[in-house]
Design a protein around this nucleic acid. Structure first.
Length: 656
RNA sequence: GCUGACGUAGCUCAACUGGUAGAGCAGCGCACUUGUAAUGCGCAGGCUGGCGGUUCGAGUCCGCCCGUCAGCUCCA
């Protein structure tokens, strides 16, 4: 070893500067050489792109970065180590517990454990937290041991832990490591933070069931979610942010702003009822998109809410997706002995296909774009329902584009543009775009010729590139009938929801034997594109409410202006002003209640009404209004016309 | 569907180990006639989600059902 010690290596820091250290130096030593503060904060080290324990020797020249709480990878390491600390606490409190996996996640960590016959209730979490803190105070080091596969297997055979044994099976000899802190040893790739003492503020958040390896047929484990911080103050900030996120919850705001309601017991779960204000919101969104679509060559259509079972047999929805649909209304049997009857429509496409078939189509007609705000019904699993983001009856801003294979790319581009317009108009700046492609391992499960798929996938990629959209690809996520592009937006709690979607479909044209006549007078099969920029109005509005915290843009607000007369004597003048605003299609209400001005202002503020116009004797005399904006407070007194001129554009519904 | 938690007035929440269901807000009435985020007084509001059980007695304990929430699984 002596000669290694003498060898010098060059360490390159993130800023490009270099240092010389003896070979075998550690991240901790490098951090110390940079500064005591960094050494104190250092959690792990990145060596040539690989995150490692701070104390693992560095033997070769390397580019390194010392990772702290401020680095994503530093946080991940911290939370991973916290999962081990929680496991140690569980081991003490619940003897016989079997550990499976315990990874860090976006916000914290979890550990899936098998508690055998024991159960764990939420109020036991605090005791586990206390135990974690007690263990953390001992400041045990996380020690890495590389072990042979044989030893690893023996260890978990002794522990009688089939889960870890299953994990080890998939590992190669030589890449198996254990980490040990205090009395807890765990199969783990690492890396970990130096010692448990860094974990000052753990918080366990919830208990949930989770299946081993995510498979429903496997045993169900207990998953404990937690988060932890190096400082108590950071935990407090986290909890405060969570409280604020709950304030934006669309279920809460929907009630407070009288947008929608549920009667889950009598009307049914997942079946929202839209109140007048919510309906105004919906209709405004619908109108603005409808107008834009008509400009872009879409033709509105209207179809019934039910269709014969035969329609869905041809489309393939029935009985294939029977479990996800409301049971059919069976009226009898046909000659073949099949059920006859009707199905609440789970999708709009079969009806639109029939509309396409109402006519013969020449290549000159294509693309045919049929649009409908169509309400569909799906029997989503009970555990999946929630607020407006997952419901059983919802309205899609649906349209189906029937086009030639050559037109797919151009159509895709237009739809991407439209979707981006919608997102932009509502200030969704943070969203993800996911391209879902075929599973290259299993091309059998897809319908449509390979060549068409290849072309469509290429078309999507090019359309995405040409619209400057930043999208990532997910092989294997495509529907069986075609590749797609989905737009995902997060809700207040950070859960990602699919909103807009654009999907290529080779299946339905085939099943319904759709045709068009090409320039050589030959019958050809068109391609269908399903697309919905909002996705569903329900989910979109749910996410939108959380995105803006109920503070809708003025053009979308259910009530745009609240007129507040300072007393009964000025209600007449308030009516005059209201009438004037209504000629401009502004949604205005007058607060004639027997209350103080302060109270009326407060009410309008809590209702998040964009503009309040206070009117009294002075205003009546001068023909003015005292303007107060929800966003910016009092704006001074101006003539009504000036108000209309200044604020007018804000009231216009438009996609810009 | 699975795991865990939960369900009390329109809303938000109280009611110690089983012992007469309360408060604030909202609503209604009266007074006040109001100047930029809560005027005062009063009234009313309940099969404690439903069904069954234990008990002298159940909001409270037990079982089943309905539903909500968090997660898992699923998602045309």
């Amino acid at each position: 070893m002596a000669e290694i010690d003498e060898k010098q290596i060059t360490i390159t820091l993130p800023d490009g500067s270099t240092q010389t250290h003896p070979a075998g130096t550690t991240g901790r030593e490098v951090a110390e050489s940079i500064g005591a503060g960094l050494a104190r904060d250092a959690l792990a080290i990145k060596v040539n792109g690989e995150v490692r324990d701070l104390d693992r020797p560095i033997t070769e020249d390397a580019e390194i970065a010392i990772l702290t709480w401020d680095d994503e990878e530093g946080k991940e390491t911290f939370w991973h180590s916290s999962a081990h600390l929680m496991a140690e606490a569980l081991q003490e409190l619940y003897p016989g517990v079997k550990f499976t996996i315990g990874p860090p996640i976006d916000q914290g960590f979890y550990y899936d454990v098998d508690l055998g016959d024991q159960t764990l209730s939420a109020d036991e979490l605090e005791a586990i937290e206390d135990k974690m803190l007690e263990l953390a105070r001992r400041d045990a080091e996380y020690e890495r041991h590389e072990v042979s596969k044989e030893d690893a297997i023996r260890f978990y055979e002794d522990e009688d832990n089939p889960y870890k044994l299953e994990l080890i099976e998939d590992l190669e000899e030589g890449e198996i490591s254990f980490y040990e802190q205090g009395d807890f040893t765990d199969l783990c790739r690492g890396p970990h933070i130096p010692s448990t003492g860094r974990i000052k503020a753990p918080k366990l958040l919830s208990v949930a069931g989770a299946y081993w390896r995510g498979d429903e047929s496997n045993p169900q484990l207990t998953r404990i979610y937690g988060i932890s911080f190096p400082k108590q103050k950071l935990l407090e900030q986290f909890l405060e942010r969570r409280r604020k996120a709950k304030e934006r919850d669309h279920r809460k705001l929907g009630k407070e702003l009288d947008l929608f309601t549920f009667d889950t017991e009598q009307v049914g779960p997942g079946l929202p009822m839209w109140l007048p204000k919510g309906t105004t919101l919906r209709e405004t969104l619908r109108t603005v998109l409808q107008q834009e679509q008509i400009k872009q060559g879409y033709k509105p259509v209207t179809t019934p809410h039910i269709g014969r079972l035969d329609l869905y047999r041809t489309s393939g929805h029935y009985p294939h997706y029977e479990e996800d649909q409301f049971p059919p209304m069976v009226t009898g049997q046909n000659e073949e002995g099949e059920e006859e009857g009707y199905l609440l429509k789970p999708m709009n496409c079969p009806h639109h296909v029939k509309i396409y078939q109402n006519d013969h189509h020449s290549y000159r007609d294509l693309p045919v774009r049929l649009a409908e705000f169509g309400t569909v019904y799906r029997q989503e699993q009970t555990g999946e329902l929630g607020g407006l983001t997952r419901v059983r009856g919802f309205t899609q801003d649906d349209a189906h584009i029937f086009c030639t294979p050559e037109q797919v790319k151009a159509e895709f581009k237009e739809v991407i543009d439209l979707t981006l317009k919608v997102l932009d108009a509502l200030d969704f700046e943070e969203f993800e775009a996911q391209i879902s492609l075929r599973d290259p391992e299993d091309t059998e499960k897809y319908v449509g010729r390979d060549a068409l798929w290849d072309q469509a996938e290429q078309d999507i990629r090019e359309a995405v590139a040409e619209t400057d959209l930043d999208a990532y690809e997910e092989p294997g996520e495509a529907a069986f009938y075609g590749p797609k592009l989905d737009f995902m937006v997060e809700d207040a709690l950070g859960r990602a929801w699919q909103l807009g979607t654009i999907q290529v479909d080779y299946n339905l044209p085939e099943r319904f034997e759709l045709t068009y006549v090409d320039e050589h007078d030959e019958r050809k099969r068109p391609v269908m594109i399903h697309r919905a920029p909002f996705g569903s109005l329900e989910r979109f509005i749910g996410v939108l409410i959380e995105h803006c915290g109920g503070n809708f843009p003025t053009w979308l607000a259910p009530t745009q202006v609240q007129i507040i007369p300072v007393g009964d004597d000025f209600v007449d003048y308030a009516e005059d002003v209201a009438a004037q605003l209504r000629t401009e299609d502004i949604r205005v209400e007058i607060d004639t209640s027997d209350e103080t001005v302060g109270y009326k202002i407060r009410n309008a503020e809590t209702q998040k009404i964009p503009y309040m116009l206070v009117v009294g004797g002075d205003e009546e005399e001068a023909g003015t209004v005292s303007v107060r904006s929800h966003a910016d407070g009092p704006q001074g007194t101006v003539p009504v016309d000036d108000f209309l001129e200044q604020a007018g554009p804000e009231f216009q519904p438009t996609l810009k």
